[in-house]
Amino acid sequence: MKLVYAIVQNKDANLLAKKFSENGIRATKLASTGGFLSEGNTTFIIGIADEKVADVMKVIKENCHQREEFVSPVVNSHAGELTQPVQIKVGGAIVFVTPVDEFRRF
Rank of each mutant, 00 (worst) to 15 (best):
N10Q: 15
V74D: 05
S32N: 09
M57G: 14
I60Q: 02
L15F: 02
E81Q: 14
F96C: 08
A79P: 01
N10R: 15
V74E: 14
A31W: 03
F106R: 10
S38K: 14
I46F: 02
G24T: 01
K2Y: 08
G35E: 06
L82G: 02
F44L: 03
K11T: 09
N23G: 04
E81R: 11
I48S: 10
T42C: 04
G80D: 06
D101E: 15
L30S: 11
K89A: 13
N76R: 14
P85F: 01
T43G: 04
G91C: 07
A17V: 00
V97E: 00
N41D: 04
T42Y: 06
P85I: 04
V97Y: 09
S77P: 04
N41I: 00
Q9N: 15
M57P: 06
G47T: 05
K2R: 14
N14E: 15
G35Y: 03
L3Q: 10
D101S: 13
Q9C: 00
I60P: 05
A49T: 10
K52R: 12
E69V: 13
V74Y: 08
V56G: 02
E51D: 15
H78I: 14
E62Y: 00
R104K: 15
F44Q: 02
I88E: 08
I88S: 10
C64Q: 01
E68Y: 07
P73S: 07
S77R: 08
G35L: 02
F20E: 01
V100I: 15
A6I: 01
R67A: 06
T28Q: 09
G80P: 07
V86D: 02
Q84K: 10
H78L: 13
L82R: 08
G40I: 00
F103V: 11
G34R: 07
T43A: 10
Q84H: 10
K89S: 15
R67V: 01
N63C: 07
I7M: 12
A17S: 15
R104Q: 11
T28D: 06
E62G: 06
E62M: 03
N10E: 15
R26L: 11
E68N: 12
V95W: 09
A17N: 09
V59Q: 04
S38E: 15
K52H: 10
K29C: 03
H65M: 03
H65P: 00
C64W: 03
V95L: 07
N41P: 00
S77T: 13
L3G: 05
F70A: 14
F20I: 01
N76K: 13
K2C: 04
G24Q: 05
N41S: 14
V86F: 01
Q84S: 13
G40V: 02
D55A: 11
K52S: 11
V75Q: 10
T42N: 03
D50N: 14
K19V: 04
N63P: 08
Q87T: 07
P99E: 13
L30Q: 03
P99R: 02
P85K: 13
A93I: 04
K89T: 14
K2S: 03
A13L: 03
E22G: 04
I48A: 06
S21R: 12
K2V: 00
P99G: 07
T28M: 09
T33G: 08
P73M: 06
E68P: 00
F44T: 01
E51V: 07
F103H: 12
I94Y: 12
A31L: 12
S72Q: 12
Q9R: 12
K2H: 11
